[in-house]
């Protein structure tokens, strides 16, 4: 076994085995992921036309250059979709972090009888198909026959009975966020429980000795120590929100929901970036859809970088 400290240009046996082990994955990824990304970039510089032959959709496109990017970046609907996405993320992510962490803190306590079963019960919805869950929420949010509107009515709040949840531009995004927090909080909970386990008991003991209150312990000790996990969840949820469309598709019956006026243009309140991308794709504007994907990719990379800066472990 070559064990010399100096790295040589020659392939070591270990390196060779490394390549062998990664080869199957890399080959499949190259064909079905990397190539499509490259191909999509090419598509993003072209666009189908009205009379593109269905037999040759892809060769029968016209060259647009940067035209697709320009037309997106100058469209108000596109900017609204980004705004809606960030509004939605601003609702969803803090709420779901808070919900997951609270659940984790309660269910981390093994002295609570039934904690195992409860963990499973909270986690279960995470594995369900988003589309199907979205459709069910459409029923639950129905203003006439859904339980929530009736519950509020019983409490004397008739606003939802009149305006609905998914039916008006004000509550459509919060309602979807609410449904998705409930669906996803179990996943965050499990990850937080693990992270909590990894915090050495001695740190809490030290805090106790210093006479810290439970609130101080939470905000001064626990949360700072959970920062890597929070970072991980923030980044993955942001990516999910940026590209996700199924929940919006299902809960607005594919349309994007009620209309609002945005800078003089009529847009649909629930039309987030993922849904806008889907609509482009669905209408066969493959060039625009690909261009939109690359814009979203750039945004995703920027967000990831910023997040690492802000939340990243500073000791690294």
């Amino acid at each position: 076994m070559p064990n010399q400290p100096r790295r040589t240009r020659r392939l070591t046996a270990d390196a060779l085995w490394g390549y062998i082990f990664i080869a199957p994955f890399v080959v499949v990824a190259a064909v079905f992921l990397v190539f499509p990304i490259g191909y999509s970039f090419y598509l993003s510089l072209r666009e189908t036309t009205l009379y593109s032959s269905w037999y040759n959709q892809f060769s029968d496109m016209v060259w647009m250059g940067a035209g697709n990017y320009v037309s997106l970046l100058t469209s108000k609907v596109f900017w609204y979709s980004l705004l809606a996405t960030f509004l939605y993320a601003a609702l969803l992510i803090p709420l779901s972090l808070a919900a997951s962490l609270s659940l984790a803190l309660v269910l981390n306590n093994q002295r609570l009888p039934g904690y195992q079963a409860l963990r499973s019960a909270f986690f279960l919805p995470h594995v369900f198909d988003v589309f199907v869950v979205g459709i069910i929420w459409l029923l639950l949010f129905n203003s006439t026959s859904g339980p929530f509107a009736s519950l509020f009515e019983a409490l004397g709040i008739t606003w939802f009975k009149v305006h609905g949840f998914l039916d008006n531009p004000v509550t459509v995004l919060p309602s979807i966020a609410f449904a998705m927090v409930l669906k996803g909080m179990g996943f965050g909970m499990v990850l937080f429980i693990v992270a909590l386990h990894n915090i050495p008991e001695s740190i809490f003991e030290a805090a106790d000795i210093d006479g810290a209150s439970p609130a101080q312990k939470l905000f001064r000790v626990t949360i700072p120590l959970l920062r890597p996990m929070i970072l991980f969840l923030v980044v993955t949820s942001l990516m999910g929100v940026l590209n996700g469309f199924t929940e919006f598709y299902a809960m607005t019956r594919a349309t994007g929901g009620p209309s609002v006026s945005f800078l003089g243009e009529t847009v649909q309140a629930g039309r987030v970036s993922g849904l806008h991308l889907y609509r482009l794709f669905d209408e066969s504007f493959y060039g625009h859809a690909a261009a939109m994907s690359f814009i979203l990719l750039v945004i995703a990379l920027l967000i990831t970088a910023v997040n690492f800066k802000l939340l990243g472990d500073r000791s690294q």
Binding site: D129, V130, F131, V132, G134, I135, T246, Y249, A250, R253, A254, T255, Y278, D282
Partner: peptide, 11 residues
């Protein structure tokens, strides 16, 4: 997932 399974008003 569900693309196309849902009918918007159009479909």
């Amino acid at each position: 997932s569900g693309v196309g399974r849902w009918s918007g008003p159009l479909s």
